[in-house]
């Protein structure tokens, strides 16, 4: 494992931690998209089916379990916690799942490296992860007063993706025969989706202003 990959995973972990802490400390999930969290849950479930079939390393197994458990915790809080669920912006979080899930599923059925259930679901998770942030970005755009922590959460998620690109470049240069085109293209698409957000995040940070995204 190289430094970019480790830094990427740690940033991913930190992003989830920030979200858990924000919701738990403020007892509010204002500005957080339940749709994005549920899409991530679907991504993790489909991708980590190999927890049962394929042991890679202790690190790998523990991280997978943390990602699954933390995402399901957030969903549980947003749906069922008696204080937190009241703060969910249900009317604003209107992005439709099917617009993301169906195209990704079709693409995974058509474009995969092996036509088996495990492989198609794994590929589906790669495609879906690339676009799963969209409901969150739309919700942020509709939220007038973006919570610092919610902004940081999205920024950390975007940074994790950027670090993964560096990881791929590093691996491509150091490992013979290392190539994975589907993952690379999806990962690049995913990172591009964050560029607009990054622009406004850095601008607001520089000017010491509260983050707001233009409609």
């Amino acid at each position: 494992m190289n430094i970019f990959r480790l830094a990427g995973d740690m940033t991913h972990l930190l992003s989830i931690l920030v979200l858990l802490l924000k919701i738990n400390a403020t007892r509010s999930c204002r500005g957080v998209s339940l749709k994005t969290q549920e899409l991530y849950a679907l991504v993790f479930v489909c991708r980590y089916l190999d927890l049962f079939t394929n042991f890679i390393s202790m690190y790998n197994t523990i991280m997978k379990i943390i990602f699954l458990a933390s995402t399901f915790t957030i969903i549980y809080w947003m749906r069922f916690h008696k204080v937190i669920r009241v703060t969910y912006d249900r009317e604003q979080d209107t992005f439709r799942y099917q617009f993301l899930v169906l195209p990704c599923l079709v693409l995974a059925l058509l474009l995969n490296s092996e036509f088996t259930v495990m492989e198609v679901l794994w590929t589906f998770s790669i495609y879906l992860e690339a676009v799963a942030i969209l409901p969150q970005l739309v919700l942020l755009q509709r939220t007038n007063n973006i919570d610092n922590l919610t902004g940081n959460y999205v920024f950390l998620l975007g940074s994790y993706r950027a670090l993964y690109i560096l990881n791929w470049i590093y691996r491509f240069l150091t490992e013979p025969n290392y190539r994975q085109y589907l993952v690379w293209i999806s990962g690049i698409v995913q990172t591009i989706i964050y560029i607009d957000f990054f622009y406004y995040y850095i601008k607001s940070w520089k000017n010491n202003e509260k983050l707001s995204l233009p409609a």
């Binding site: 990959r5 390393s57 991280m63 990602f67 092996e114 794994w122 990881n167 490992e175 190539r179 994975q180």
Partner: peptide
């Protein structure tokens, strides 16, 4: 081969 390599990432 491609799929196997990718699966050590998260």
């Amino acid at each position: 081969v491609q799929a196997l390599i990718a699966k050590d990432e998260l």
